[in-house]
Computed example of a mutant assay.
Amino acid sequence: MWEARRMVLVGYGGAEMLDIACPSDVFDSANRLGARRAYAIELASVDGGAFRCQSGLRLVADRRLDQVRGPVDTLVVAGGRSHEAAAADPRLIAQVRRLARLSRRVASVCTGATVLAEAGLLNGRRATTHWAYAEWLAARYPQVRVDAGPLFIRDGRIATAAGITSALDLALAFVEEDEGASLAREVARRLVTYMQRPSNQAQISALLSAPPPEHGVVRDLAAHVTAHPGADLSTPVLAARAGVSPRQLARLFEAHLHTTPSRYVRTVRTEAAARLLETTSLPLAAIARRCGFGSTETLRTAFLDYLDATPSNYRRLHRRTPAPE
């Protein structure tokens, strides 16, 4: 019998409980469903013992980080609202650096990327984090190539997951890598989750879930674009609607939405098309017209760029009960 894979989850006061629970439940379910080589899951923290998660619930670590000896199969660092304090703890950073050298794989969930970045493990690498913290992470650690789009990113043996439940997707990818797609599908079915969202799938609606822009002109145009994805939303038309020049409109979008007008429109249209693919049986040509793409080929290109999936594959993975059309 092969020796169990040692999966070390790193927590701290203020950690997000789901960042710990999602991967641990995936690995536990893989064990229950007959993984050929079992996952030995343990929770470690700097001081050991109990710590309070950001939800207020308490978890009890199995041991202190300095008590963990190699080899480690996978090291997973949780995120949470205290991620900056965690990254400022020299004891935690030293232990994460040490254990990373002893681990086959290293991963972070959500703002756990801050800890990996502080430890120097993301230098020169492409990485992701929760979309709301991506700009902050990029500014704080310019040597990290931050990409706020994907659910998770693998760069060599280092993996970073976008936010909270994206840990499910990353952990399922680990199980598929270790044990094959069949067991990973069974785990996903047991957990009643997708099997599994592609790693490069965008954090859906990240742009549109952000707070509305404070600037009145940008806020009104963003609402107009969202409500009328099939309309003429070219930059000159939007500028005329707002009573500004196209150049001024571009400056306003860059300042308040961190993107260009045309890119914002394309994102909105892609997300509108995604919702129709999820909830209707409309043919692709009809969806393309309704969402302002004009042709199925333009729709397909947008999906490949934004979601790294074709519209047909996206519908297959995400189809819900059709709504009236």
Rank of each mutant, 00 (worst) to 15 (best):
L168M: 12
A173S: 15
L9S: 04
A240K: 14
A100Y: 01
H228L: 12
D305I: 00
F152R: 02
L172Y: 07
A181I: 02
P236R: 04
L92E: 11
S82F: 08
L221N: 09
N123Y: 00
L102S: 10
P213K: 09
S234T: 15
R126K: 13
A222K: 12
D47K: 10
E3A: 14
A119L: 03
A4S: 15
V106R: 01
A323K: 03
E42V: 08
R36M: 09
G11T: 12
L304A: 05
R5I: 07
A138D: 14
T259Q: 06
G294H: 08
E179L: 01
S199T: 01
Q201I: 01
A239Q: 11
A132F: 12
D155Y: 03
A273N: 05
G11Y: 02
A184W: 12
Y133H: 09
A227L: 06
V187D: 10
G56T: 01
L317E: 07
E135A: 14
A286W: 00
I158Q: 00
V109L: 12
P211W: 12
V268C: 10
G112A: 14
G120R: 08
F174A: 02
L282G: 07
P236K: 06
V244F: 13
P324R: 14
H256T: 09
G14N: 06
R52M: 06
A171M: 09
L276P: 05
P236Q: 04
T165A: 12
T259A: 05
L33H: 09
V175R: 09
R263M: 06
S281Y: 02
V76I: 15
V225E: 04
G163I: 04
H130Q: 05
S82Q: 14
A171N: 10
E3P: 11
H215W: 04
